[in-house]
Amino acid sequence: MIRQLILTDFRSYATARLETAGGPVVLVGPNGAGKTNLLEAVSLLTPGRGLRGATAAEIGRREPGERDGRPWAVSVRLADESQVGTGVPGPGAARRVVRINGEPAPPGRLLDHLRPVWATPEQDRLFSDARADRLRFFDRLVFAAEPDHAAAVASYDKALRERLKLLVDAVEGPPADPAWLEALEARLAESGARIARARVAALTALQAAVDTRADSPFPQADLGLDGVAEIWASEGADTDTLTGRLLDGFRSARARDGAAGRSLYGPHRTDLTALHRAKQRPAAEGSSGEQKALVLNLILAQVTRLRDLAAPPLLLLDEAPAHLDEARRAALFAEIEHLGLQAFMTGTEPALFAALEGRAQMVRVRPGALES
Protein backbone atom coordinates (compact mmCIF):
# COMPACT_ATOMS: atom_id res chain seq x y z
CA MET A 1 0.00 0.00 0.00
CA ILE A 2 1.04 3.56 -0.66
CA ARG A 3 2.05 5.48 2.46
CA GLN A 4 3.34 8.62 0.75
CA LEU A 5 2.77 10.13 -2.70
CA ILE A 6 4.91 13.01 -4.01
CA LEU A 7 4.35 14.89 -7.28
CA THR A 8 6.73 17.35 -8.92
CA ASP A 9 5.63 19.51 -11.87
CA PHE A 10 2.92 16.98 -12.67
CA ARG A 11 -0.06 18.39 -14.58
CA SER A 12 -1.51 21.18 -12.42
CA TYR A 13 0.79 20.53 -9.45
CA ALA A 14 4.08 22.36 -8.99
CA THR A 15 4.54 20.08 -6.00
CA ALA A 16 2.22 18.00 -3.86
CA ARG A 17 2.62 15.53 -1.02
CA LEU A 18 0.02 13.15 0.33
CA GLU A 19 0.55 10.96 3.39
CA THR A 20 -1.86 8.04 3.76
CA ALA A 21 -2.63 5.45 6.41
CA GLY A 22 -2.96 2.71 3.81
CA GLY A 23 -6.75 2.50 3.67
CA PRO A 24 -9.33 4.15 1.40
CA VAL A 25 -8.55 7.72 0.34
CA VAL A 26 -11.32 10.05 -0.84
CA LEU A 27 -10.35 13.06 -2.95
CA VAL A 28 -13.09 15.71 -2.92
CA GLY A 29 -13.12 18.97 -4.83
CA PRO A 30 -14.70 20.92 -7.67
CA ASN A 31 -14.29 19.98 -11.30
CA GLY A 32 -10.87 21.03 -12.60
CA ALA A 33 -9.24 21.08 -9.16
CA GLY A 34 -6.83 18.25 -10.00
CA LYS A 35 -8.46 15.14 -8.53
CA THR A 36 -8.06 13.03 -11.65
CA ASN A 37 -4.47 14.24 -11.99
CA LEU A 38 -3.67 12.49 -8.71
CA LEU A 39 -5.22 9.24 -9.89
CA GLU A 40 -3.34 9.52 -13.18
CA ALA A 41 -0.07 9.95 -11.26
CA VAL A 42 -0.66 6.68 -9.40
CA SER A 43 -1.76 4.92 -12.61
CA LEU A 44 1.62 5.74 -14.17
CA LEU A 45 3.30 3.49 -11.61
CA THR A 46 2.62 0.60 -13.96
CA PRO A 47 3.74 -0.11 -17.54
CA GLY A 48 1.84 1.80 -20.21
CA ARG A 49 0.36 5.27 -20.51
CA GLY A 50 -1.86 5.41 -17.45
CA LEU A 51 -5.57 6.07 -17.16
CA ARG A 52 -5.65 9.02 -19.58
CA GLY A 53 -3.52 7.34 -22.23
CA ALA A 54 -1.24 10.40 -22.34
CA THR A 55 2.31 10.40 -23.64
CA ALA A 56 5.16 11.31 -21.30
CA ALA A 57 5.65 14.62 -23.12
CA GLU A 58 2.04 15.71 -22.46
CA ILE A 59 2.15 15.42 -18.68
CA GLY A 60 4.68 18.00 -17.45
CA ARG A 61 3.36 21.25 -15.96
CA ARG A 62 3.50 24.29 -18.23
CA GLU A 63 3.73 27.92 -17.24
CA PRO A 64 2.22 30.51 -19.62
CA GLY A 65 4.50 30.88 -22.64
CA GLU A 66 6.25 27.52 -22.14
CA ARG A 67 5.99 25.29 -25.20
CA ASP A 68 7.24 22.06 -23.63
CA GLY A 69 6.13 20.58 -20.36
CA ARG A 70 8.58 20.69 -17.49
CA PRO A 71 10.42 17.58 -16.29
CA TRP A 72 7.96 15.78 -14.03
CA ALA A 73 8.14 13.06 -11.41
CA VAL A 74 5.84 10.79 -9.42
CA SER A 75 7.23 9.01 -6.39
CA VAL A 76 5.67 6.78 -3.75
CA ARG A 77 6.87 5.20 -0.54
CA LEU A 78 5.17 1.86 0.11
CA ALA A 79 4.29 0.13 3.35
CA ASP A 80 7.41 -2.05 3.07
CA GLU A 81 9.51 1.16 2.77
CA SER A 82 10.21 0.56 -0.95
CA GLN A 83 10.57 3.71 -3.03
CA VAL A 84 9.04 3.58 -6.51
CA GLY A 85 9.02 6.43 -8.99
CA THR A 86 8.73 7.49 -12.60
CA GLY A 87 9.11 10.67 -14.62
CA VAL A 88 11.03 12.35 -17.42
CA PRO A 89 14.52 13.85 -17.15
CA GLY A 90 14.06 16.88 -19.42
CA PRO A 91 11.45 19.27 -20.88
CA GLY A 92 9.25 17.56 -23.46
CA ALA A 93 11.05 14.22 -23.09
CA ALA A 94 9.16 11.50 -24.94
CA ARG A 95 10.14 8.52 -22.79
CA ARG A 96 9.72 8.20 -19.06
CA VAL A 97 12.19 6.49 -16.77
CA VAL A 98 11.51 4.24 -13.81
CA ARG A 99 13.44 4.02 -10.56
CA ILE A 100 12.96 1.48 -7.80
CA ASN A 101 14.77 2.17 -4.54
CA GLY A 102 16.87 4.75 -6.38
CA GLU A 103 18.06 2.40 -9.13
CA PRO A 104 16.98 2.47 -12.81
CA ALA A 105 14.57 -0.35 -13.66
CA PRO A 106 12.56 -1.53 -16.68
CA PRO A 107 8.86 -0.53 -16.54
CA GLY A 108 7.79 -4.16 -16.16
CA ARG A 109 9.42 -4.23 -12.71
CA LEU A 110 6.75 -1.81 -11.46
CA LEU A 111 4.31 -4.72 -11.33
CA ASP A 112 6.48 -6.32 -8.65
CA HIS A 113 5.38 -3.49 -6.35
CA LEU A 114 2.09 -2.00 -7.56
CA ARG A 115 -0.81 -3.19 -9.71
CA PRO A 116 -3.18 -0.26 -10.19
CA VAL A 117 -6.64 -1.08 -11.57
CA TRP A 118 -8.96 1.77 -12.50
CA ALA A 119 -12.44 2.76 -13.55
CA THR A 120 -13.08 6.15 -15.19
CA PRO A 121 -16.15 7.98 -16.54
CA GLU A 122 -14.95 7.19 -20.07
CA GLN A 123 -15.79 3.54 -19.37
CA ASP A 124 -19.44 4.26 -18.52
CA ARG A 125 -20.50 3.23 -22.03
CA LEU A 126 -17.66 0.81 -22.62
CA PHE A 127 -19.81 -1.84 -24.28
CA SER A 128 -21.46 0.53 -26.76
CA ASP A 129 -18.37 2.58 -27.59
CA ALA A 130 -15.66 1.72 -30.11
CA ARG A 131 -14.42 -1.86 -30.28
CA ALA A 132 -10.78 -0.70 -29.99
CA ASP A 133 -11.54 0.95 -26.64
CA ARG A 134 -12.97 -2.28 -25.25
CA LEU A 135 -9.96 -4.23 -26.44
CA ARG A 136 -7.52 -1.77 -24.84
CA PHE A 137 -9.53 -2.01 -21.60
CA PHE A 138 -9.37 -5.80 -21.67
CA ASP A 139 -5.69 -5.97 -22.61
CA ARG A 140 -4.88 -3.87 -19.57
CA LEU A 141 -6.77 -6.37 -17.41
CA VAL A 142 -4.68 -9.11 -19.00
CA PHE A 143 -1.26 -7.61 -18.40
CA ALA A 144 -2.05 -6.60 -14.82
CA ALA A 145 -1.51 -10.31 -14.10
CA GLU A 146 0.72 -11.18 -17.08
CA PRO A 147 3.32 -8.41 -17.60
CA ASP A 148 4.69 -10.09 -20.74
CA HIS A 149 1.37 -9.43 -22.47
CA ALA A 150 2.16 -5.71 -22.71
CA ALA A 151 5.43 -6.43 -24.52
CA ALA A 152 3.66 -8.79 -26.93
CA VAL A 153 1.01 -6.18 -27.74
CA ALA A 154 3.66 -3.48 -28.26
CA SER A 155 5.68 -5.75 -30.57
CA TYR A 156 2.54 -6.68 -32.50
CA ASP A 157 1.42 -3.06 -32.92
CA LYS A 158 4.84 -1.96 -34.17
CA ALA A 159 5.04 -4.75 -36.74
CA LEU A 160 1.45 -4.07 -37.82
CA ARG A 161 2.23 -0.40 -38.56
CA GLU A 162 5.37 -1.29 -40.50
CA ARG A 163 3.61 -3.98 -42.54
CA LEU A 164 0.73 -1.67 -43.44
CA LYS A 165 3.11 1.04 -44.65
CA LEU A 166 4.83 -1.48 -46.94
CA LEU A 167 1.50 -2.65 -48.34
CA VAL A 168 0.08 0.84 -48.88
CA ASP A 169 3.28 2.09 -50.53
CA ALA A 170 3.21 -0.93 -52.85
CA VAL A 171 -0.27 -0.06 -54.18
CA GLU A 172 1.07 2.78 -56.34
CA GLY A 173 4.81 2.15 -56.09
CA PRO A 174 7.26 -0.71 -56.40
CA PRO A 175 6.35 -4.05 -54.75
CA ALA A 176 7.17 -4.47 -51.09
CA ASP A 177 10.42 -6.20 -50.20
CA PRO A 178 9.19 -9.82 -49.84
CA ALA A 179 11.83 -10.75 -47.27
CA TRP A 180 11.00 -7.81 -45.02
CA LEU A 181 7.26 -8.44 -45.43
CA GLU A 182 7.72 -12.09 -44.47
CA ALA A 183 9.78 -11.10 -41.43
CA LEU A 184 7.13 -8.64 -40.25
CA GLU A 185 4.32 -11.16 -40.72
CA ALA A 186 6.31 -13.81 -38.86
CA ARG A 187 6.66 -11.36 -35.96
CA LEU A 188 2.94 -10.55 -36.13
CA ALA A 189 1.99 -14.22 -36.11
CA GLU A 190 4.28 -15.06 -33.19
CA SER A 191 3.17 -12.08 -31.08
CA GLY A 192 -0.46 -12.58 -32.09
CA ALA A 193 -0.43 -16.19 -30.93
CA ARG A 194 0.95 -15.18 -27.54
CA ILE A 195 -1.63 -12.39 -27.27
CA ALA A 196 -4.55 -14.68 -28.11
CA ARG A 197 -3.53 -17.36 -25.60
CA ALA A 198 -3.00 -14.78 -22.82
CA ARG A 199 -6.39 -13.18 -23.52
CA VAL A 200 -8.21 -16.51 -23.37
CA ALA A 201 -6.51 -17.47 -20.10
CA ALA A 202 -7.33 -14.08 -18.57
CA LEU A 203 -10.94 -14.24 -19.73
CA THR A 204 -11.35 -17.66 -18.13
CA ALA A 205 -9.94 -16.40 -14.83
CA LEU A 206 -11.97 -13.19 -14.95
CA GLN A 207 -15.22 -15.03 -15.71
CA ALA A 208 -14.57 -17.37 -12.80
CA ALA A 209 -14.07 -14.35 -10.54
CA VAL A 210 -17.30 -12.79 -11.82
CA ASP A 211 -19.15 -16.04 -11.13
CA THR A 212 -17.98 -16.11 -7.50
CA ARG A 213 -19.65 -12.74 -7.00
CA ALA A 214 -23.21 -14.04 -7.40
CA ASP A 215 -24.39 -12.18 -4.27
CA SER A 216 -23.00 -8.85 -5.44
CA PRO A 217 -25.52 -6.02 -6.01
CA PHE A 218 -23.66 -5.31 -9.25
CA PRO A 219 -24.90 -7.16 -12.36
CA GLN A 220 -22.96 -10.11 -13.69
CA ALA A 221 -21.83 -10.47 -17.28
CA ASP A 222 -21.11 -13.50 -19.42
CA LEU A 223 -17.92 -12.55 -21.25
CA GLY A 224 -16.57 -13.58 -24.62
CA LEU A 225 -13.84 -12.76 -27.12
CA ASP A 226 -14.96 -12.35 -30.71
CA GLY A 227 -11.75 -12.98 -32.64
CA VAL A 228 -10.63 -15.89 -34.77
CA ALA A 229 -7.28 -16.35 -33.00
CA GLU A 230 -8.96 -16.36 -29.58
CA ILE A 231 -11.55 -18.88 -30.81
CA TRP A 232 -8.74 -21.16 -32.01
CA ALA A 233 -6.95 -20.74 -28.67
CA SER A 234 -10.13 -21.53 -26.69
CA GLU A 235 -10.55 -24.67 -28.80
CA GLY A 236 -7.12 -25.87 -27.67
CA ALA A 237 -4.78 -24.80 -30.47
CA ASP A 238 -1.20 -24.63 -29.18
CA THR A 239 1.16 -21.73 -29.84
CA ASP A 240 2.79 -23.30 -32.91
CA THR A 241 -0.58 -24.04 -34.49
CA LEU A 242 -1.85 -20.55 -33.77
CA THR A 243 1.31 -18.99 -35.20
CA GLY A 244 1.01 -20.99 -38.43
CA ARG A 245 -2.66 -20.17 -38.93
CA LEU A 246 -2.11 -16.47 -38.27
CA LEU A 247 0.83 -16.37 -40.64
CA ASP A 248 -1.34 -17.85 -43.40
CA GLY A 249 -4.01 -15.29 -42.64
CA PHE A 250 -1.66 -12.32 -42.84
CA ARG A 251 -0.29 -13.53 -46.16
CA SER A 252 -3.78 -13.94 -47.58
CA ALA A 253 -4.84 -10.46 -46.39
CA ARG A 254 -2.01 -8.53 -48.06
CA ALA A 255 -3.87 -7.31 -51.14
CA ARG A 256 -7.03 -6.43 -49.22
CA ASP A 257 -5.14 -4.57 -46.49
CA GLY A 258 -3.08 -2.60 -48.99
CA ALA A 259 -6.15 -1.58 -50.98
CA ALA A 260 -8.13 -0.65 -47.86
CA GLY A 261 -5.26 1.28 -46.28
CA ARG A 262 -5.85 -0.46 -42.96
CA SER A 263 -5.19 -3.85 -41.42
CA LEU A 264 -8.39 -5.89 -41.56
CA TYR A 265 -7.04 -9.18 -40.21
CA GLY A 266 -5.45 -10.16 -36.93
CA PRO A 267 -5.89 -10.16 -33.13
CA HIS A 268 -6.12 -6.35 -33.11
CA ARG A 269 -9.61 -6.84 -34.60
CA THR A 270 -10.84 -8.88 -31.64
CA ASP A 271 -13.79 -7.60 -29.61
CA LEU A 272 -14.71 -8.12 -25.96
CA THR A 273 -18.37 -9.12 -25.72
CA ALA A 274 -20.61 -9.12 -22.65
CA LEU A 275 -24.12 -10.40 -22.04
CA HIS A 276 -26.07 -8.98 -19.10
CA ARG A 277 -26.79 -12.29 -17.38
CA ALA A 278 -29.96 -11.35 -15.51
CA LYS A 279 -31.58 -9.66 -18.51
CA GLN A 280 -30.11 -11.98 -21.16
CA ARG A 281 -29.32 -9.12 -23.50
CA PRO A 282 -26.09 -7.59 -24.80
CA ALA A 283 -24.49 -5.12 -22.40
CA ALA A 284 -24.31 -2.62 -25.28
CA GLU A 285 -28.09 -2.25 -25.10
CA GLY A 286 -28.01 -1.14 -21.48
CA SER A 287 -28.07 2.42 -20.16
CA SER A 288 -24.85 4.17 -19.17
CA GLY A 289 -25.72 3.46 -15.52
CA GLU A 290 -26.20 -0.22 -16.26
CA GLN A 291 -22.96 -0.40 -18.22
CA LYS A 292 -21.12 1.40 -15.44
CA ALA A 293 -22.39 -1.17 -12.92
CA LEU A 294 -21.24 -4.01 -15.19
CA VAL A 295 -17.80 -2.43 -15.59
CA LEU A 296 -17.48 -1.96 -11.83
CA ASN A 297 -18.29 -5.62 -11.32
CA LEU A 298 -15.56 -6.54 -13.82
CA ILE A 299 -13.11 -4.25 -12.01
CA LEU A 300 -13.97 -5.81 -8.65
CA ALA A 301 -13.66 -9.29 -10.19
CA GLN A 302 -10.25 -8.29 -11.56
CA VAL A 303 -9.21 -7.17 -8.09
CA THR A 304 -10.39 -10.49 -6.67
CA ARG A 305 -8.27 -12.50 -9.11
CA LEU A 306 -5.20 -10.33 -8.47
CA ARG A 307 -5.29 -10.47 -4.67
CA ASP A 308 -3.01 -13.47 -4.32
CA LEU A 309 -0.18 -11.99 -6.40
CA ALA A 310 3.01 -10.69 -4.80
CA ALA A 311 1.96 -7.08 -5.42
CA PRO A 312 -1.73 -6.71 -4.50
CA PRO A 313 -4.05 -4.54 -6.58
CA LEU A 314 -4.59 -0.86 -5.93
CA LEU A 315 -8.00 0.53 -6.92
CA LEU A 316 -8.45 3.92 -8.61
CA LEU A 317 -12.05 5.07 -9.03
CA ASP A 318 -12.61 8.38 -10.83
CA GLU A 319 -16.11 9.73 -10.12
CA ALA A 320 -17.29 6.13 -9.72
CA PRO A 321 -19.95 6.84 -7.05
CA ALA A 322 -21.47 9.75 -8.97
CA HIS A 323 -24.01 7.77 -11.01
CA LEU A 324 -24.67 4.95 -8.57
CA ASP A 325 -27.74 4.85 -6.39
CA GLU A 326 -27.26 4.98 -2.62
CA ALA A 327 -27.51 1.20 -2.18
CA ARG A 328 -24.86 0.47 -4.81
CA ARG A 329 -22.57 3.20 -3.46
CA ALA A 330 -22.74 1.63 -0.01
CA ALA A 331 -22.18 -1.82 -1.51
CA LEU A 332 -19.13 -0.59 -3.44
CA PHE A 333 -17.58 0.87 -0.30
CA ALA A 334 -18.38 -2.28 1.68
CA GLU A 335 -16.64 -4.45 -0.94
CA ILE A 336 -13.56 -2.23 -0.90
CA GLU A 337 -13.34 -2.62 2.87
CA HIS A 338 -14.08 -6.36 2.75
CA LEU A 339 -11.33 -6.93 0.19
CA GLY A 340 -8.86 -4.94 2.29
CA LEU A 341 -8.03 -2.68 -0.63
CA GLN A 342 -6.32 0.62 -0.73
CA ALA A 343 -8.57 2.66 -2.98
CA PHE A 344 -8.24 6.23 -4.21
CA MET A 345 -11.67 7.67 -5.10
CA THR A 346 -12.72 11.07 -6.44
CA GLY A 347 -15.95 13.03 -6.23
CA THR A 348 -17.25 16.58 -6.23
CA GLU A 349 -19.42 16.23 -3.13
CA PRO A 350 -18.48 14.80 0.31
CA ALA A 351 -22.05 13.53 0.67
CA LEU A 352 -21.35 10.87 -1.94
CA PHE A 353 -18.98 9.23 0.54
CA ALA A 354 -21.13 9.53 3.67
CA ALA A 355 -21.12 5.74 4.08
CA LEU A 356 -17.32 5.89 4.51
CA GLU A 357 -17.30 8.62 7.16
CA GLY A 358 -14.75 7.77 9.84
CA ARG A 359 -13.40 4.84 7.82
CA ALA A 360 -11.62 6.66 4.99
CA GLN A 361 -9.12 9.49 4.73
CA MET A 362 -10.84 12.59 3.34
CA VAL A 363 -8.65 14.97 1.31
CA ARG A 364 -9.83 18.33 -0.03
CA VAL A 365 -8.39 19.05 -3.45
CA ARG A 366 -8.04 22.66 -4.51
CA PRO A 367 -6.27 23.91 -7.66
CA GLY A 368 -2.64 22.86 -7.20
CA ALA A 369 -3.04 22.02 -3.49
CA LEU A 370 -4.19 19.28 -1.12
CA GLU A 371 -5.77 19.75 2.31
CA SER A 372 -6.18 16.72 4.59
Rank of each mutant, 00 (worst) to 15 (best):
R251T: 11
F138W: 09
P178S: 03
D133R: 12
P89D: 03
D112E: 15
S234L: 10
P321M: 01
G23Y: 07
E19R: 14
D129S: 15
G340M: 10
A209R: 09
A183T: 11
L160D: 08
S128H: 02
K158C: 03
L166I: 06
L206F: 08
P91K: 07
V303C: 14
G108Y: 05
G87E: 03
T243A: 12
G249S: 05
D211H: 03
G32T: 11
E235R: 14
A21D: 09
G347N: 11
E146T: 15
P104T: 04
P107C: 06
T120L: 11
E19N: 14
E122N: 04
D129H: 12
L78M: 08
S191M: 02
S263R: 12
I2E: 08
W232S: 02
L181P: 11
V168F: 03
Q83E: 13
L5M: 03
A150K: 03
R262Y: 14
G368E: 13
G368K: 14
D238G: 01
T15D: 06
N31K: 08
S43Y: 06
G50M: 08
G224K: 09
D308I: 01
G92N: 05
E337D: 14
G192F: 00
A201M: 13
R49G: 05
A334C: 11
F333N: 01
D271C: 04
H276F: 14
G22Q: 09
P30D: 14
A351L: 07
R109I: 00
A355K: 08
D215G: 09
G249Q: 09
S12W: 04
L141Q: 10
T212A: 14
R328H: 09
D80T: 06
W180C: 06
R3H: 12
V76P: 07
P178R: 02
V117Y: 12
A343M: 04
A170R: 10
P121W: 08
G224E: 10
T270A: 13
L264T: 10
A330K: 12
T46E: 13
Y265C: 02
A73F: 06
R213M: 13
P217Q: 12
G60D: 02
P312L: 09
K292S: 06
R96W: 04
A360S: 10
A360V: 09
D148Y: 00
E103I: 02
G65E: 06
E371D: 15
A119F: 15
P219F: 07
D133M: 07
R17Q: 13
Y13E: 08
F344P: 03
K279W: 13
L164E: 03
R99K: 10
I299T: 14
R3D: 10
D318N: 12
E182Y: 01
R213H: 06
E103Q: 14
D211G: 03
G29D: 08
H276S: 10
Q302I: 06
R99A: 04
P71A: 13
D211T: 05
R277A: 15
L300V: 07
Q207P: 14
D318S: 13
S12Q: 10
T243R: 15
A198S: 11
N37M: 05
R70G: 00
D222V: 13
D211Y: 00
E235I: 00
L78G: 07
L126C: 09
G53W: 01
L314I: 11
R329V: 02
T120M: 08
